[in-house]
Design a protein around this nucleic acid. Structure first.
Length: 562
RNA sequence: GCGCUCGUAGCUCAGCUGGAUAGAGUAUUUGGCUACGAACCAAAGGGUCAGGGGUUCAAAUCCCUUCGGGCGCACCA
């Protein structure tokens, strides 16, 4: 909001001088020279064939002559070859902070048009416990959901289980083959990788599994009953894990739920003459005349009659389109599936399904060798084990807090893992290092929580009696913190726009660093200047209130102690 | 073969709608607890932003190219 105010004033000055282009103000990258800066003099100069020096000096002189200059600025200067540096007034800072204090949504601008987002993340497979790969989609997806809501839009989230594909056929084959009657989680955990391997080795087994899958999809009673049992056992465990992560979904649909929409969808596709036969399978061509790259068709129905996930994804979009009319459908899915989504999205546009479809890819979780992460025994690490491992390391490193209760421990372990993951740019692969995920010093979850609790302790020990800040700022550390708090909308907006939670993580960290510096240099409890004490208490109250709200966006809770 | 993606400090990563002196954490060296919690703070060293070319007043950021890593390309998800 601070940037917007500055832009409004300065744009007006530009316009009054005959320069009609919108200019923008950005955070200064030279904090020794100013709080904010404008670099657009160069562009204006070029457009009007003028010397940047001339324009800059002209504009800055005008700004300095504004009647209300002192209300907004401490200093506005022009520096060669074409930068306007702005130092804002303490008055403005405090006025805006007071607005944040009064408003229950931190004085953030409300969205003018509320939109409905459909968010598809999670996507765990039935019959497979959640592993480290599921961590990213779950927490990135949940964070994006919370950011969109915080911004003021509506979201419907769907876990979208992988519950009807070949993997189920494989598990059922295994069950029948092993003559298993009591389906347990342990059994499922074991059978899936086994069958997966077997199918890769033995083509006949693969064919049999594929046949089972097809018959299941067609309603075979025996398979249906087994499938229901598998779902029941598996979903219970998946829910337990999501619950532990603080991740929740509005819908618990899966591929299987889309089946009743395949028929109407097929009719549309047929009416538009999009379905083609090829090698006994039904396909949809998605190649465009403008393509320079190879673009394989989407396989709509396999030659044996079974459907694949391209089809269920399409049917699901059709369902959401007709039922909910969302403005956007976002998929938080591994970046390696980008081709699949491009195919699906192209079919949608051919069908006239007019929704903004977007694949929000995320990078692979790799081990230190740069290959997808595996445990020493070569398996993917289960989420349960990951959390257990981090918890153990944490308990062993922090020997001083033996009395910490289990709930607080879980909160901290969650914070460690989530903050370690979410501070990365989601689009890039990253190295999964158990040690990094257990670290408690530096740019970590514990650092954030520790800062919050330290500040909170001061607040609890003192009595806050004021509701508004006066016009004073007492020193530079104080000022830096105040300005950082004003920049909330910068981080929210960029995180929302690019659907990247790491901007929020970065902002949280920045606030905490400034809080720590403030804490270290400004002692509050024994202050004799009671007015100053109250001002600072109020400032820290706002800071911690904001922190808590932002941490919530990243699913990080606050422990009672640490 | 076609295409996508990445390469930034010893290590792990930010920064990428182009802006002034490229930032964190960690590791290394050093200083700070009789303190509202030292899981902290302060300081130092550490960089040809993979190489080369181009566009621009200005490039880590945009374009081209070479090299190097990862990934995807018809009946898995």
């Amino acid at each position: 909001m601070i940037i917007k105010i500055l832009e409004e004033i300065i744009n007006k000055v530009f316009k009054e001088n005959g320069y009609m282009e919108q200019i923008s103000i950005i955070k200064s990258n030279r904090s020794d020279l100013g709080d904010y800066q404008c670099n657009d003099i160069f562009k204006i100069a070029k457009l009007y064939h003028k010397n940047p020096l001339e324009i800059g000096e002209e504009i800055v002189a005008k700004i300095n002559n504004l009647t209300f200059f002192k209300d907004y600025f401490k200093e506005v200067t022009f520096i060669k070859p074409g930068f306007i540096n702005i130092i804002i007034s303490d008055n403005l800072i405090n006025e805006l902070l007071n607005k944040m204090l009064k408003d229950d949504h931190f004085n953030l601008e409300k969205v003018t048009k509320k939109e409905l987002y459909f968010l598809d993340y999670g996507g765990p497979n039935i019959a497979k416990p959640l592993h480290v790969g599921h961590l990213r989609t779950a927490i990135i997806g949940e964070a994006i959901k919370r950011i969109i809501k915080f911004k003021g839009h509506d979201v419907i989230s769907d876990v979208h289980l992988g519950d009807y594909g070949l993997q189920i056929g494989e598990v059922i084959y295994g069950l029948l083959n092993d003559k298993v009657t009591d389906i347990t989680l342990d059994y499922l955990t074991e059978i899936y990788p086994k069958m997966n391997k077997l199918c890769k080795e033995d083509d006949n087994v693969l064919k049999a599994c594929s046949q089972i899958t097809k018959e299941l999809q067609e309603g075979n009673i025996t398979y249906q009953n087994l499938w229901k049992k598998i779902c029941e056992v598996s979903i219970k465990d998946i829910k337990r894990m999501y619950n532990y992560l603080g991740v929740s979904f509005d819908l618990w649909q899966g591929e299987s739920d889309s089946y009743k929409y395949i028929e109407p969808l097929t009719k549309i596709l047929e009416a538009k003459n999009l379905l083609k036969e090829s090698e006994n399978a039904k396909i949809i061509e998605v190649k465009l005349a403008t393509d320079t790259k190879e673009m394989p068709p989407l396989i709509y129905q396999k030659s044996n009659g079974a459907y694949l996930y391209g089809t269920t994804d399409l049917a699901t979009i059709y369902e959401r389109f007709t039922k909910y009319h969302p403005d956007h459908i976002l998929y938080v899915v591994d970046a390696r599936q980008s081709l699949h989504f491009e195919q699906v999205f192209r079919v949608c546009s051919k069908c006239g399904i007019d929704i903004n479809l977007e694949h929000l890819g995320y990078g692979t979780v790799n081990g230190s060798d740069g290959k997808p992460f595996k445990t020493r025994s070569g398996d993917t690490i289960k989420l349960d084990d990951l959390f257990k491992q981090v918890k153990e390391i944490f308990i062993n490193t922090k020997a001083t807090n033996k009395d910490m209760n289990n709930q607080d421990l879980d909160i901290i372990v969650n914070a460690i893992i989530k903050f370690a993951d979410l501070q990365n740019n989601r689009e890039k692969d990253y190295i999964f290092d158990p040690l990094k995920f257990s670290n408690v010093v530096g740019k970590t979850g514990p650092y954030i929580l520790y800062t919050y609790l330290r500040i909170n302790k001061i607040l609890k020990s003192e009595n806050l009696t004021i509701e508004q800040l006066n016009t004073t700022i007492y020193n530079n550390n104080d000022r830096d913190l105040r300005i950082k708090l004003l920049e909330l909308s910068l981080s929210i907006d960029s995180a929302f726009k690019e659907k990247r939670p790491n901007y929020i993580a970065e902002y949280i960290y920045d606030i905490c660093v400034l809080n720590n510096i403030f804490y270290q240099t400004n002692h509050i409890n024994n202050l004799e200047d009671l007015a100053k004490k109250q001002q600072w208490l109020l400032l820290l109250t706002l800071s911690n209130k904001l922190l808590k709200e932002l941490l919530n966006l990243l699913m990080i809770e606050i422990p009672s102690q640490m």
